Amino acid sequence: MPLKLSQVYYLLFLLGGALFGCTPRSVTSVSTTQTTEGYFTNPIAKGADPWIIKKDGFYYSCGAGKGGIYVAKSDKLTQVGERKTVWKAPEEGWNAYSVWAPELHFLNGKWYIYYAAAKAPGKPFIHQRSGVLESVGQDPFGPYRDKGMLYTGDSLQYTGSEPVWAIDVTILPLNGSLYAVWSGWQKNAKTDATRQHLYMARMNNPWTIGSNRVKISSPEESWETGGPLDLQEGPQILKKNKKVFIIYSTRESWLKEYRLGQLSLADSTLNPLEPKNWVKTGPVFQGTDQVFGVGHPSFTTSADGTEDWIIYHAKISTQPGWARDIRLQKFTWDKKGNPVFGTPIPAGTPVKLPAGEGRKVHSCQD
């Protein structure tokens, strides 16, 4: 029986390992990418909630860990680079604990980090609010000044109403305006087993919400429900040829059923704060019997700008929990201009390097 192209690649991968005295890397202990010439394998790093932004020929990633936020820089999409802490949570205050899912954005000549945090440690996670950091200069490694908590309630901040539970803030620049998009609760609650929706609001500037929030989506479709908790979270913006998409995570983040849904703006000139203008589709990316719980992506292009890539996390086992790693793969577009993410590639499968990245030195080191 003729071998499939993927099988040929894998045989070449194994042969390369034998020639250099190495074997494919364990999926649970990867810290750098194992490659043969011209190929890499997933996962590319440990961690979750990956965020990558490309600027001036470099990839900047952002993440949370050890009570703070780190940034890393690399000239290769498949290599994360050295993670350097750029902000530590204060010893007390609304953002002292549970720092989650930061994102790094370059707006109006400065870097901004959007993140979620809480005033109290541990479960239940009922205190999550969202805030923003602003770079003092133009260096993504800081220093940063704390611009405070974002207002995520139903009345403008000057009325004195309380911000509502909010995580995963991302930014949508559209038609000369700036919008915040996030995952939130309808009202604050005493249990974290609370339904999550997607909200949007107009911003006055990168650190100030300037309008009441609008709920643009709820977990209502059959592929978004059916587990112990219906939720939508991790919204990410994807633009192509004047089309605007919000790719979000749904189902439960700790289960293998975690997956991606899509909202598309019917016309990019329409008001994005009108829920009826968003069309829902899904699931657009979901796990297989070899890849579990795919979610919380970000998007970028290859080094030469000719290819589109999705970076996402996946669970390392089918057991409930938040042990995850970071993966990436190329995606395409259909004739109607919609993204086609395909099927997640199993760990250890050789994948062709992003265009323009060049060949990498073979290494057996963790």
Rank of each mutant, 00 (worst) to 15 (best):
M1N: 14
I311K: 00
Y114Q: 06
T225F: 05
N175D: 11
E221L: 03
P90R: 02
P354N: 12
K46R: 15
I126L: 06
P283E: 01
K55M: 11
L156D: 05
T78E: 07
I52Q: 02
D168S: 01
R83P: 08
K54V: 09
A201H: 08
H296W: 04
K276Y: 08
T41M: 06
F20T: 00
G148V: 01
R359M: 06
G234C: 10
Y39I: 03
T306H: 04
H197E: 13
D192T: 12
G261L: 06
A96D: 09
M203N: 07
F331R: 14
S363H: 14
D289F: 02
G210Q: 08
K276T: 01
A355F: 10
S317V: 09
G57S: 08
A101C: 04
T23G: 04
F13T: 10
G226M: 04
N42M: 02
V71K: 13
G282H: 10
P297Y: 00
I310H: 00
L178K: 06
R327K: 14
V132G: 05
S218V: 05
G148Y: 00
C22D: 00
L11E: 06
R359G: 03
T269H: 11
K46V: 09
T300W: 00
N271K: 07
H127Q: 12
L229K: 11
